[in-house]
């Protein structure tokens, strides 16, 4: 094939889309639906992952001081906790605050259990830099005089890590399966398109066109359809992302603060979707036309 043909072949690819507009439209609808479903599954999985790791980051421990420790002594312990390397944040939480929060939480029920005195001791709320060093840090805190106990969250830390892993795994499988279904549907769509155009392919070959010459416009056509579908799917996802996220936040408030905003995802979504769309177009076009190119012409249409 000569280079002078390039312009013609590219133009032909564009023309084909219009000439076969019904099939093009069908392909776009199928591809867009598949990309939206797969893309949404990916985004949900990524967001759940993010949510879980944010919860992990938020991990707050309570250091309970001995019940009879005076307020002054309690305050003195603060700097000592802060000296420990793995402590990110350490705030004093007096027994008065504790009882107040308790009252607020329980509301009316508390009224019925009045006058039993304040059952809480003073405490510190701390946050660790690195959750995996949990055990060491807790040991160091416990060695400080006046510390009674530290709330045990080692199991939660482990569980969150496991959950994150699980969500990633399940998410990947769902996306993989959807991806395979997508490819299947798309290859069928392309096969249908090709079948309706085998006559055309046969004619081109009987006039002396090389396989490459026949193939290039078909592949360009498929890639343009793929790119367009990718952009469309990305556009739709980006457009509905915020409303869906807001609606979900209405149910679980944490979502609002602990998941990705549209600003975080739009670029990746756009690039990935259009890239994947083009790759699917290329692969689908290449594979499905090969079947018809193998024939030498006459077998397809006969004389």
């Amino acid at each position: 094939m000569k280079f002078s043909s390039a312009g013609y072949l590219i133009k032909e690819g564009f023309k084909n889309i219009w000439n076969n507009r019904k099939m093009s439209l069908a392909s776009i609808v199928v591809l867009v639906s598949c990309l939206i479903i797969t893309g949404s599954a990916s985004l949900i999985s990524v967001n759940v992952s993010t949510l879980i790791s944010k919860i992990g980051d938020d991990n707050e421990l309570t250091v309970y001081l001995k019940y009879d420790l005076s307020d002054i002594d309690s305050i003195k312990i603060g700097p000592e906790i802060q000296k420990i390397k793995n402590i990110e944040q350490c705030t004093y939480y007096s027994k008065d605050e504790a009882i107040k929060e308790y009252k607020d939480t329980l509301g009316n029920i508390y009224e019925s259990m009045q006058d039993e005195g304040n059952p809480f001791g003073n405490a510190y709320k701390i946050r660790l830099k690195d959750l995996s060093k949990y055990n060491d840090t807790v040991k160091q805190i416990k060695q400080i005089n006046g510390v009674d106990s530290v709330s045990d969250r080692s199991d939660i830390a482990g569980k969150l890590t496991k959950l994150n892993y699980f969500v990633t795994l399940v998410g990947s499988w769902i996306v993989l399966i959807l991806g395979i279904v997508t490819l299947f549907i798309i290859s069928n769509t392309i096969k249908m398109t090709m079948y309706s155009r085998r006559y055309e392919i046969s004619i081109m070959k009987s006039v002396g066109a090389t396989n490459t010459f026949v193939r290039i416009p078909f592949i360009i056509e498929a890639m343009i359809i793929g790119l367009f579908s990718g952009l469309l799917a990305a556009g739709i996802i980006i457009a509905i992302y915020t409303p869906v996220r807001d609606a979900a936040s209405g149910i679980v408030r944490l979502i609002n603060t602990s998941t990705l905003t549209v600003g975080d995802i739009w670029l990746q979504t756009l690039l990935l979707m259009s890239g994947i769309g083009m790759i699917i177009g290329f692969a689908g076009g290449f594979i499905s036309i090969s079947k018809y190119l193998k024939k030498e012409g006459g077998e397809i249409i006969g004389w």
Binding site: M1, K2, S4, S5, G7, Y8, M204, V207, G208, A209, T210, F213
Partner: peptide, 10 residues
């Protein structure tokens, strides 16, 4: 088409 196939200039 028959001419384009063999790369004839437009």
């Amino acid at each position: 088409f028959a001419m384009r196939v063999i790369g004839t200039p437009e």
